[in-house]
């Protein structure tokens, strides 16, 4: 009898997720194998059209660009976040330093995007300064290109990387660095040979927390980017709302899903011991991360 009790408790959640998560996911999987309807929607007829359509050079280019931009943004983010996390972990005033990272992070996502438009725009803050200093009389076009998108993506997701890195580095035993120095390693050697291998799980978590949302980015390239910085997220939305090619939107969504979740599982499964750290990445950490980005 007791076996059933647990199931009863979980039933509402199972049902809810089946209906509003698994079913929609199932539908887009199904749609991706169907024929496109004339006015949106689908024809009930099996077809691989949506997948062959992805071979379209336009979509391939965007896929490649999305991958490239996500990798660049993730690497940049990690490179910047690593010393930041280290600096917070070694600080005497960790609380204050975390506070300073978290304030911008808890500011509304769209407000922050808007702020960057206000900075980079033709009539924006940066051009204001340039004009005020008489460097150039005409305004410089900072917005609507890949560099701007990567800049803002890095800005948006830096805290996602800083927090897990801080959390891992804070647990690191700094006497190991002393020990390495004592045994003849230079400061740089002690970081590379001792610190980095021991905070690998933090680096992986930080990388995932950054890469996954960036890979599925929608709002940032839409508002900050131009035609040359369209990412897969934008293509999906366009196929859905403008071109109304639902099977194609579905197949691209599937690709994004498989790529990102596949990556997560791959990294998590590679070492059974690290799996715990990635997945149990406890709610305390996931929560602020997620609350900042939606």
């Amino acid at each position: 009898m007791k076996k059933q009790v647990g199931l009863y408790y979980s039933l509402p959640q199972i049902m809810w997720l089946l209906v509003f998560f698994a079913a929609p996911l199932g539908i887009i999987i199904a749609y991706s194998f169907l024929k496109k309807g004339l006015y949106g929607g689908v024809e009930p007829q099996f077809s691989l059209e949506a997948y062959t359509a992805m071979a379209n050079p336009n979509i391939l280019i965007v896929t490649w660009r999305t991958l490239k931009m996500s990798v660049i943004a993730t690497i940049l983010t990690l490179l910047i976040a690593l010393p930041c996390g280290y600096s917070i972990a070694r600080s005497q005033n960790q609380a204050m330093r975390l506070f300073l990272v978290i304030v911008p992070f808890w500011t509304n996502f769209l407000v922050r995007i808007y702020a960057w438009i206000a900075i980079l725009g033709n009539e924006g803050f940066l051009n204001d300064i340039i004009r005020a200093l008489h460097l150039r009389s005409e305004s410089v076009q900072f917005l609507y290109n890949q560099t701007a998108v990567i800049l803002v993506l890095v800005y948006m997701y830096l805290p996602y990387a800083i927090l897990p890195l801080f959390s891992t580095i804070d647990k690191f035993d700094f006497t190991l660095l002393d020990a390495a120095r004592d045994l003849g390693a230079s400061r740089f050697q002690s970081y590379v040979r001792i610190l980095l291998p021991n905070i690998k799980s933090g680096l992986v978590t930080a990388g995932l927390f950054t890469f996954v949302p960036i890979f599925g980015a929608y709002a940032v390239p839409l508002l900050i980017g131009g035609k040359d910085s369209y990412m897969l997220g934008n293509i999906i939305a366009d196929q859905l709302t403008k071109t109304r090619n639902w099977p194609l939107a579905s197949s691209i969504s599937m690709t994004v899903t498989i790529l990102t979740t596949g990556l997560v599982f791959l990294i998590a499964m590679r070492k059974p011991r690290e799996q715990k750290q990635v997945f149990d990445a406890d709610p305390g950490l996931i929560t602020p991360v997620a609350s900042g980005g939606r």
Partner: peptide, 23 residues
């Protein structure tokens, strides 16, 4: 149950949004 409860978190938001819209 625990696996299924965790998957929606790692899906890109756009996928969740699009699948719900189609649904």
């Amino acid at each position: 149950v625990s696996t299924m409860s965790f998957v929606p978190m790692i899906l890109p938001e756009i996928v969740v949004g699009v699948s719900l819209l189609i649904f």
